[in-house]
Simulated assay, not measured.
Amino acid sequence: MRAVVIEQPGTVSVQDVPDPIPGPGDLVVAVRGAGICGTDIHLLDGELPYDRYPIVPGHEFYGEVVDVAGDIDRARIGRLVTVDPNMPCGACAECRRGRANLCERYEALGVTTDGAAAELVRVPAGLAYDLPADVSDVGAVLTEPLACAIHGFDGLPRRPQDRYLVYGAGTMGLMMGLLAADMTSEPVTVIEPNPSRRALAESFGMRAVSSPEEVDPDERWESVIDCTGVVEAIEDGLGRVRRGGVFQCFGVTETDAMVKLRPFDIYRNEITVIGSMAVHNSFDRAHRLAQVWGDEKLAPLVTHGYALDDYAEAIRTFRDGAGLKIAIRPGGLA
């Protein structure tokens, strides 16, 4: 089969590699769509604490089951599935206390083991969620990032009529905004310098501004969510949380980034600061919600499609910040 292979940090190519062979309890999935996200870039640049190169990237994907092994019902062959890429060990201290997303022996398809930037991928059957025959393609491609957004939203108070401020109108910021909009009749405020992304946020009914300077300095929000990972945005957002409110670090900063804050304000205003890491008890909800939202809400978020052999061009498009979600189509473009 054809697959994207990162030989070592900074070296990536599309190669002919052996087809995956399912072991007991595995499926083999013919990939229909695989999204590119920041994790793929970090993996390509050698910025993750894993050194398992060469590796096939790709952890946001769906496709058709084409083979099974062991006691897996062969009736699953031909079904469309979306796949949770995370493979917690289930035995470490974090897993045993119900925090599998913080697993001490972290494993994930497309991150620590071969993923879906390929024509075929082997997956544990228990991670595959059946999709309807009339599948929403964009909903299926976006299931994994939506599961991350839902986990992030699970950490917020989610009180009716709370007001939400989101920094960044990329794929994740818009998803967080859409989830927030379902909780309140108050417009979700989004700060985003990119005019096309602001326009998309506005098309979803959000109030979009280009910079913090456009927001009343005295305005405060119950939930402030940073989806940029930019230090300046985080520092600004911490000052915009209403007393008793929550600030969430959802975006990924550089590992050595430092933020200035006034601990007295955290104390005096009883502000809660929380993080959100990957997927946690949210994939099943995401795979159902993505199909409910379908093309109506999600189609604008998938802006580019590339054939597998054009992976390098897709990465350049991602790095340039053009569009939103970029999908790789190993079976070819429709």
Rank of each mutant, 00 (worst) to 15 (best):
G33E: 07
L179H: 04
I55F: 06
A30H: 13
L48C: 08
P85F: 01
E186R: 14
G239H: 09
R197L: 05
G239S: 07
P85N: 02
C148W: 05
E60W: 07
F283T: 04
C89V: 08
A312I: 10
L109P: 06
P88R: 05
G70Y: 10
T184S: 15
P187G: 09
S196V: 11
S136N: 11
R99I: 00
D137G: 01
V259R: 08
E213N: 13
A201E: 03
G110E: 05
S13P: 00
L289R: 13
A201R: 03
G237F: 11
L200G: 05
G170C: 11
S196C: 00
E60K: 09
G23A: 14
A312P: 01
A30S: 14
T317E: 06
G173I: 08
V5E: 06
L109N: 10
H280L: 08
R163P: 00
G98A: 13
T113V: 15
T171D: 02
R197K: 14
R207W: 02
P88K: 10
I150G: 04
E313G: 04
V231R: 14
D16F: 00
L102H: 14
R240I: 06
Y167M: 15
S185W: 01
E219L: 14
E119T: 08
A117S: 12
E7V: 00
L127Y: 09
Q248E: 14
G38D: 04
R197Y: 03
E202R: 15
I234S: 09
E47G: 12
E313N: 07
A116P: 11
R52F: 02
L102K: 05
V141N: 02
Y164P: 06
H304L: 01
L127F: 11
P85L: 01
T184P: 07
G115I: 05
G205E: 07
V138I: 13
S203R: 14
G126K: 11
Q248S: 15
V66Y: 07
W293I: 04
V68C: 07
A257C: 09
G10F: 02
M176F: 10
L200S: 02
V215C: 10
I6V: 14
I234H: 07
R288F: 02
C103E: 12
A108Q: 03
T272N: 07
V230S: 01
G205R: 12
Q161E: 15
R122W: 06
A125W: 07
I72Q: 12
R329N: 02
K260Q: 14
V138R: 13
D67P: 03
A117L: 13
D84I: 01
V246S: 12
I36C: 03
L333F: 02
T255H: 12
